[in-house]
Write a protein that binds this DNA or RNA. Structure first.
Length: 298
DNA sequence: ATATGGCCCTGGTTGC
DNA sequence: TGCAACCAGGGCCATA
């Protein structure tokens, strides 16, 4: 399931490949409307827009769109390819007119392909680009969501919770101290932290040595900070490895990630803990399968 | 405020 | 072997 590292990997991939390209034609397939914005309105809004930048916010992929200025839309030049990143917001990113917001749900994929590439089953959206390529949204389970925002009428998308990669020690304590719910449930709550899902909640709790059922308000300051740092390390490590491919996650080029090879507890029920050999235990918490080491995690 | 369970949806697994 | 029942789970909602 795509969480922060997977979504970050996809957003970077799409940004690198499609920045400066232009949406020429949009096709939406499917019967029901699994979208937050009606397909017809999305298609109207998307067609003709240039892709100024693509980035991640929480588990959402945000495509910043604007009018094509004619300079790069047909043939994105190589020198422009990596010029503007988050650190140096260039002129192109300064005044987007609209946003296309993609949430991948459980099984969503965002793929950059050639028009000749065979259409995967459950392809729900296909954006034809001036460069001749296509951006496709594929989602068998249909838990994903697509939204179009006209920024002259609505505010830009913002995640409800703090970014787990940048949250400070003080913010982290303020987020969890006043509450009394299982820390795992709190980590999954996107209104507190945006981007953490089942895999990285379990993995960060293991690395911090904290049991998933511990109540947030009962964690010591040292434990909370261990957790904050463990979370950041796990997420950054996973981003470096291109995410975790557990079900059918792939990046924008259809390539699998490698962080699933580094999982210490997730989906390792009954297997020996990599640190102490105790069998990994699985419980149900907040309706989610939850994995931990009963010896390493207190 | 927090917990629980249903819903969506399909592919993979399990059971007979 | 074949088919049906079952289940996972991100986000959201209603209910406890």
């Amino acid at each position: 399931m795509p969480e922060l590292p997977e979504v970050e990997t996809i957003a970077r991939g799409v940004h690198e490949r499609l920045r400066g390209d232009q949406i020429v034609e949009v096709w939406f397939g499917g019967h029901r409307e699994p979208f937050k914005t009606p397909a017809a309105r999305q298609a109207r809004g998307l067609e003709g827009q240039a892709i100024l930048a693509v980035h991640r916010t929480g588990k959402h992929i945000v495509c910043e769109l604007g009018p094509a200025d004619g300079s790069v839309q047909s043939h994105p030049s190589r020198k422009n390819k990596d010029a503007a990143r988050v650190e140096h917001p260039g002129a192109m990113e300064s005044n987007p007119a609209a946003q296309w917001i993609v949430h991948l749900g459980m099984t969503g994929r965002l793929l950059v392909t050639t028009p000749e590439a065979p259409m995967a089953a459950h392809t729900h959206a296909r954006l034809s680009l001036a460069s001749g390529r296509e951006l496709r949204f594929v989602d068998p389970r249909r838990f994903g969501r697509l939204e179009f925002r006209d920024l002259s009428r609505s505010p830009g998308f913002s995640a409800p919770g703090a970014d787990p990669l940048n949250v400070t020690a003080e913010e982290f304590v303020q987020l969890f101290r006043p509450r009394r719910l299982a820390i795992k449930a709190a980590l999954l709550n996107q209104k507190l932290l945006s981007g953490v899902g089942n895999i990285y909640a379990d993995e960060s709790l293991f690395r911090a040595g904290i049991r998933p059922r511990r109540l947030t308000g009962r964690l010591t300051g040292a434990e909370l900070d261990r957790l904050r740092l463990a979370l950041r390390e796990v997420l950054e490590h996973a981003i470096r490895l291109g995410g975790s491919s557990v079900s059918d996650y792939v990046d924008a080029d259809g390539v699998r990630g490698f962080f699933q090879l580094e999982h210490c507890v997730y989906l390792r029920t009954g297997l020996a803990c990599l640190r102490c050999q105790t069998p990994i235990r699985r419980i149900l918490l907040a309706g989610r399968g939850t994995h931990y080491c009963p010896r390493c995690q207190m």
